[in-house]
Amino acid sequence: MRENIGFALMCFGVIFDAVGCVGLIRLPDLYNRLQASLKCVAMGTSLILLGTMVIAGLSPLSAKAFLCLLFILIISPTTEHALARASYIGGVKLWKKSVVDKFKEDIDKS
């Protein structure tokens, strides 16, 4: 019973990973790609680690999976913010159908 629940969680995780990678191919510009795929892939990896914890029960493997999940949840938004800021300052343009760009207006004003 416990193994079946763990395998179901892992299947959902792999599905989320696949959706994130399809988004990496399909979306038009860097910022949309960054958000979509990093969120979906972080969700998929968390679900896979949760499935590992459910299968292993209370054991050293489960403790390490918990620590790994904590690191993933701390690390992925930080790298997202750092990459978005660095690529905007480094000169990557927005998509040409973007609606509004307040940051560029403020830079031009000052």
């Binding site: 038009p28 949309n32 927005l94 973007s98």
Partner: peptide
């Protein structure tokens, strides 16, 4: 159809 509507807000 990719329903996105992106932009930077403040």
């Amino acid at each position: 159809e990719l329903p996105i509507n992106p932009g930077i807000i403040k």
